[in-house]
Design a protein around this nucleic acid. Sequence first.
RNA 1: GCUCUAUUCGUCUAGUGGCCUAGGACAUCGCCCUCUCACGGCGGAAACAGGGGUUCGAGUCCCCUAUGGAGUACCA
Length: 462
Amino acid sequence: MTIRTRFAPSPTGYLHVGGVRTALFSWLYARKHGGQFILRIEDTDRERSTQASVNAILEGMAWLGLQSDEGPFYQTQRFDRYHQVIEQLLAEGKAYYCYCSKERLEKLRVMQLAAKQKPRYDEKCRKITTSSDVKGVIRFKNPKVGQVVVKDLIKGNVIFNNSELDDLIIARADGTPTYNLTVVVDDWDMRISHVIRGDDHLNNTPRQINLLQALGAPIPQYAHLSMINGDDGQRLSKRHGAVSVMNYKEEGYLPDALLNYLIRLGWSHGDQEIFSRQEMIDLFDLTAIHSSPAAFNTDKLLWLNQHYIKTGKPEEIATHLQLQADPSGPSLAEIVKVQAERAKTLKELAENSHYFFGESVEFDNKAVRKHLKPAIHAPLTELCERLAQLSDWNAEGIHATIHAVAEQYDIKLGKIAQPLRVAVTGGAVSPPIDVTTYLIGQTRTVERLKRALALIGEKNES
RNA sequence: GCUCUAUUCGUCUAGUGGCCUAGGACAUCGCCCUCUCACGGCGGAAACAGGGGUUCGAGUCCCCUAUGGAGUACCA
């Protein structure tokens, strides 16, 4: 049997991390077994579906590199097929028109709730012989007795009594089909072998199985993933920061880091934390998935992100960097190389690297006050002159020069390195000073040193 | 309310009846390295939700309670 999985989001909002995780697991399962991964947009709710959301989903999937083998399919383009199935159900007496008003249904619901019962349709219209020219919804005749066993690959056997289920609506009064009908038809038509989705759908599964059986369609395998909660254990929402995957891109996360983080949420392979894409594909297994919900922890994501920034090819990482390079300055790859270990995100890396470019630096007052004191004026002047005359501009030469000046004035390395750092970067933090100075370049270094010296001079006079 | 589902350090998890004095990772704390910030190295603190069973033996199996999550729509 060929493995066919699908990711079927409804375009009513952005693609969020929970959705990405189900997409990842489905994608992985198909890849691992040499099967197909299908993308299907469930847009039957025309009121709430938007093109912007469709774009966000497509964009997110592309950014993460979760390519589909088939699709995207749009349910709104398959209405003819759904109507055909609904007609068949009607003709076979497996579905019926219902003319109950929303008011009556609401009243019924309130009464049942008051009687501490589960709200459900009372089948009033089930026996009425109908004519399709009166406007009404169409309901599926759910079996009244027996039980449905959902053989879930993650949760195990989950048993539902048919007496708990009611006759669900498969077509609205305006004739459009509803979710439970469309998924069933699509999963059948698209020959989906494994339905991997969030466990918010677990309760729908027995209804879908009944529908599938009424249609004589095969029952796919099911795997329901637990939900992802926020840091506080509560349901993930806007409160928890980034909700859309594209926010993660903007915040400077690498796709591989996000995916690696997500795969370890509810799934594990012993104590292994780092997984390359190929390892994910090779080692992934539905049976190793945890059935309990997990809390999203940004700190760990940050750690993984830095890991990927540090270990990735600098040239590759540089392509994700949003920083304006200057032809007269170092390459972005060189900057990634020296900054990787002091940045958890690409955004942070870029923000801390402006001093490698441009004509002037922005001085951090606190750093200036602490390190650019009158006493350092003489050594720094000496250093400036020597650096200006350095014929071979490289880190080693710069390093030796700084040491020589420190020795000459009998001061500790830090006493000269920090003032130099503030002079060339504007602040007290940067990669090793020799490397930093090297990358900034001789001309700029000397210019900036002169300006810093002038600054000390002014302070001296005032 | 009802139905379904879950519960190991703060967080993600290992664990499938004796290997558990419960392991790893993130975060946290201390020390080392050091020109800054980091990275890195070493070390510490930190958990089987509670109660009953079953068993020679339970984190692991069963039941109850508590707590969390999901569903209960002419949403998906």
